[in-house]
Design a protein around this nucleic acid. Structure first.
Lengths: 249, 249
DNA sequence: GGTCTTATTCTCACATTCTGGGAATGCAAT
DNA sequence: ATTGCATTCCCAGAATGTGAGAATAAGACC
């Protein structure tokens, strides 16, 4: 394990739910001696990647990361998708999210909020596992079989709610269906009380590169609206796929 | 120069204006042999901090950085400031920005856009040098004298426009005035055609921790409006300072 | 004030990793 | 065929990283 890897591990320990950490916490998590961690913290602090909180001994991610994040280029998917997402969100009134794939996780690349005060909203940069929620499942369903199998094996199957799929077998069956029908549904698999519909976006070479999804409190996505929404989201995703194909030559 | 520092240097090479780079470019910029850079690129790619573009040999910052950025905690300044910024932006109709200090640069921490279609707008995470623009100058003006002198010496004095201050002496005089009057003005120092007004936000120990600023096309901030705006922005900044003091005990 | 606990820095002999010139491969354009 | 560039590999010497433990600092608790 080299320096960079250790640094990234330290940085990845911080999360929305645990935004600050002490050296002793990091020590325990990584199983490395505290003198080593102190050295790393000092290095990371020098480069601005982490900062010290007001409270002594507390550290958090630093603003240097914001600076870097500002320079992460938007991929063509994002640029192509945004106007279509805005249009869809306007028509449907609900939050529309574009989700990409990173290693074995999904990550929210873009979102356009719906106009309802009571709404579901992910932030850009939010990551989540692929076994729960419409976006995750639709991404998984259209991956090539090897990667799919590998991910299905390695998933941790955290149970977020009553409906979360926690069995590999069940997940396999589900994504087989999704792959056939071309869209995924999620009834509160990740967030209880919400409903999600997602459709895949493909590259010219027919690899999934992202998922387009719509999320809402589940009473606003019941049977009758749902059918129409599925059509809308699939149509929008296809439109993005088509537009991308034009540019990729 | 250790591994992390080299990694950060590589990552920092990418910018909004140069979002992608080849190995040979990085090699030239850092003056390190290409075999070394290839090794680093491989490491950085493995950790998700950089990604390969569609074009062979092109690299860009990776989505792992977005994930990390998502977990950078908002400081209390940000949380305290946002509602006040929104109120101010609503009243003034212009873009209001909260700027922090990072090393020798300013960095945009939060912004609330004004309602005018023709407006100035920084994105969160944008960095800029301290010699140009109202925010930079106001931050610089209220730093302790040692840091101030050091930064004044080390600044590169890029000339962004006709009015950019490029002389240390001139800058010193300017920040002396700013320090006395408690706010800074900028007539297109960073972006030609725009006008900026900024006021400092202090910690309980009376150190500057951020600057609140308003920016607009300069015809909308002429003499008459300007006086009123200065009052508004100074009042808002003071309000934030006061609210922060309540929490800091 | 005394006594913990915990944060933080430092040291140093030792181990590991990093380094970079150069050679080699592959690919695409000239 | 040739050039140019991307990329990988090799390896001995050089530079860094490592971590136990000592030492110091700074609160917290009694």
């Amino acid at each position: 394990m080299n320096t960079l890897e250790k640094c990234v591990r330290i940085l990845t320990l911080f999360s929305k739910t645990k935004p600050t950490a002490t050296v002793s916490y990091i020590t325990k998590q990584l199983g490395l001696p505290s003198s080593t961690i102190y050295r790393y913290i000092a290095m990371l602090k020098r480069s601005g990647l982490i900062e010290q909180t007001d409270q002594a001994g507390m550290y958090c991610l630093g603003t240097k990361i914001l600076e870097l994040a500002h320079n992460v280029p938007k991929k063509s998917v994002q640029e192509t998708s945004l106007p279509i997402m805005a249009q869809l969100s306007g028509k449907a009134g609900e939050t529309v999210t574009l989700t990409g794939l990173r290693e074995h996780d999904g990550i929210c690349l873009e979102k356009v909020d719906g106009h309802h005060a009571f709404r579901v909203s992910f932030e850009r940069g939010t990551t989540f596992p692929l076994h729960a929620g419409a976006s995750g499942k639709v991404l998984l369903a259209h991956l090539d079989p090897q990667k799919q199998d590998q991910i299905i094996k390695e998933l941790k199957y955290d149970k977020f709610s009553e409906t979360t799929i926690t069995e590999p077998k069940q997940l396999k069956a589900e994504i087989a269906t999704i792959s056939k029908q071309g869209f995924a549904l999620s009834n509160g698999e990740m967030i209880h009380g919400t409903y999600g519909i997602a459709a895949p976006i493909f590259s010219l070479s027919r690899n999934v590169i992202a998922a387009l999804s719509i999320s809402a409190p589940n009473h606003r996505l019941e049977e009758k609206q749902r059918k129409q929404m599925v059509q809308l989201i699939v149509a929008a995703a296809n439109k993005i796929t088509d537009e991308l194909a034009l540019y990729e030559t």
